[in-house]
């Protein structure tokens, strides 16, 4: 499994050198575990037959204002968003209120979701993270320009599928991390670590996701010309 830094080599060569964060010393995984991971990575991700097709449900919210679809997304994600905000230091009341805001934003911005560049969980994470900055720091959160699909362009199904599969692989890879590393990454994303303590040196399969997103961006730019 390649690590994030190797995947970046094409751009890193031109970058200002960045000090490598301190906790790069990563114990190698036991051989058996590694072999197992490689098998997982090369086969199609196991999809839970019970797991709903989140992308489709967001599409139903966008196209049909489908409240039943929204209820399913809400049921799964709202408690997670609330837990995420509580891990970030919000009390239960504030977290409840903000989680409701996040889910309202999801409804209103369903047309902005691009499944060839993010999983539904990733998209919801970014909404929740922005809301958290708003709520806990009372600061504005500058956001990059949106790249929206034109009236005719829709993301290609193959791009959507592969991005969603890669996201599932990433989720599995994080689940499989040694406990200490997993906790470090989680704390970082809960907003609980200064950024010098975070590193991408955990061997996560980010490079493939990056290439998928890059491909989707290229196609989008092409479609917008």
């Amino acid at each position: 499994m390649l690590n994030a830094r190797e995947h970046n080599s094409e751009s890193n060569a031109l970058r200002v050198p960045v000090p490598i964060p301190a906790f790069r010393v990563v114990q190698p995984l036991p051989v058996g575990n590694r072999a197992l991971k490689r098998t997982n990575a090369s086969s199609a991700p196991k999809t839970d037959p019970e797991a709903p097709d989140w992308v489709m449900l967001i599409g139903r919210i966008r196209d049909h204002q489908d409240r039943a679809a929204f209820a399913r997304v809400f049921e799964h994600f709202a408690p997670r968003v609330k837990a995420f905000l509580m891990k970030s230091g919000a009390d239960a009341t504030l977290a409840e209120e903000c989680a409701q805001d996040v889910m309202t934003t999801l409804w209103r911005k369903a047309h902005m979701f691009d499944p060839s560049r993010a999983s539904v969980a990733t998209w919801i994470f970014t909404i929740a993270r922005n809301r958290r900055i708003d709520m806990l720091r009372r600061q504005r959160r500058p956001e990059p320009e949106d790249l929206t699909w034109g009236p005719e362009a829709e993301p290609a199904q193959e791009d959507v599928l592969s991005l969603q599969q890669e996201s599932e692989k990433l989720r599995q890879a994080i689940t499989d991390l040694p406990e200490t590393q997993k906790e470090l990454i989680e704390r970082a994303y809960f907003g609980d670590l200064s950024h010098s303590e975070i590193a991408a040196e955990t061997g996560l399969p980010l490079g493939t996701i990056k290439s998928r997103i890059r491909l989707a961006l290229d196609r989008l730019r092409h479609a917008m010309k």
């Binding site: 994600f77 995420f84 891990k87 999983s119 969980a121 919801i124 994470f125 970014t126 997993k182 490079g207």
Partner: peptide, 25 residues
Amino acid sequence: AQLESFDAVGGAILEGDGLPDVPHV
């Protein structure tokens, strides 16, 4: 693309098993 791949880590954490252990959510 690099940023959105880091966002994917946040998404994976939101979907992962580190969150449901928060009681009463």
